[in-house]
């Protein structure tokens, strides 16, 4: 670590602290010293990898010291979203719009999957990867599709690696992803409250607050979570620029991510990308609190079941048979 860089780091910290803002209230007393110390390490660490302008460093400091999203005021949420948009422009030269739309009142999202109809085309997987800016380098996928033998109903007995022409006679297909459990083991496990259930039922991760311990991944009975083992890579022209803070924005290295029911779309009244992409109409998504919704129709009139019901996690994801 060169002394020059340290000095640079110090000036930036002073800049940040001098500025009268809510951040200042947050970092009071002894925490200033401790935090600034670790920040100095952080700065040299990050700037060693790629030299950054003073303006960019300042944004990074402010990002580093921000709160957990769930306890931010609306003003703070707006500030961080603006900073993230500016950083995206500075670092990757992309124009993104990061939203922080709150949950809509009287909405509780639920999902149903028709195992009679699905033919295993995996259009949903492709749409999900594209919509959610999933890492192309390690081929991260939120959705898994399993080819099932007749007589089985548990995806863990199916083949999740199939690569051939579909549909195959006498086989059927089951999809699995994050089930947004009402009693989610991952939320209970997280030591920093970096993952929680929003009022509209979506289980989200604050990618910046996550410390990357992966306890939630061990706790998930459905293999619903994915970790950023390295730096995510998405070709610039393929980036989905309409983003949400809790959704498809760029995930930092070493943080957990997962399906968010396409929070950036569904909170604006659109369907998740997987539902929209499905060519067979096997995927049903909607508001569980709306008695006229399609998902309520399915739950009332079809034979439905949930995966690993015995664990008591109460997924908001049902399989059904026509």
């Amino acid at each position: 670590m060169s002394s020059q860089k340290q000095d640079e780091a110090k000036t930036t910290i002073e800049d940040v602290l001098e500025k009268p803002s809510s951040r200042r209230k947050f970092l009071k007393g002894a925490s200033i010293a401790a935090a600034a110390g670790s920040a100095a390490v952080a700065a040299s660490y990050m700037s060693a990898a790629d030299p950054a302008s003073a303006g960019e460093l300042k944004l990074r400091w402010q990002e580093y010291f921000k709160k957990n999203y769930r306890i931010m005021s609306q003003e703070e949420k707006d500030e961080t979203v603006t900073r993230l948009e500016r950083l995206a422009k500075m670092q990757d030269n992309v124009d993104v719009q990061i939203g922080n739309e709150p949950p809509v009142e009287k909405v509780l999202f639920g999902y149903a999957f028709n195992i009679t109809r699905c033919e295993g085309f995996m259009e949903c997987v492709t749409a999900c990867v594209k919509e959610n800016n999933l890492d192309r380098k390690t081929n991260t996928q939120y959705i898994r599709i399993f080819e099932m033998e007749p007589g089985q109903l548990d995806p863990s007995t199916g083949d999740g690696q199939y690569y051939h022409k579909v549909p195959v006679d006498d086989k059927f297909y089951m999809g699995a992803q994050c089930f947004h459990c009402e009693k989610a083991p991952c939320i209970k496990a997280c030591p920093t409250k970096a993952t929680w259930k929003e009022p509209d039922g979506i289980v989200v991760v604050d990618y910046n607050w996550c410390i990357g311990c992966r306890y939630c991944q061990a706790a998930c009975p459905y293999y619903g979570r994915r970790f950023n083992w390295g730096k995510g890579e998405v070709p610039k022209e393929e980036i989905t620029t309409k983003q949400h803070y809790l959704g498809n924005r760029k995930r930092p290295m070493g943080k957990m991510e997962k399906c968010t029911f396409c929070i950036q779309r569904t909170r604006k009244g659109k369907l998740p990308a997987c539902v929209e992409a499905c060519p067979t109409g096997s995927r049903v998504f909607g508001n569980l609190l709306d008695p006229d919704s399609e998902i309520r129709y399915v739950l009332k009139h079809k034979k439905v079941f949930r995966m690993k019901e015995e664990i008591g996690t109460q997924p908001k994801f049902w399989y059904f048979i026509d």
């Binding site: 935090a35 670790s38 607050w209 410390i211 992966r214």
Partner: peptide, 12 residues
């Protein structure tokens, strides 16, 4: 060393 975000350890 197992943490993905050791710099965020202060969140604990």
């Amino acid at each position: 060393v197992d943490m993905g975000g050791p710099l965020q350890a202060w969140h604990l």
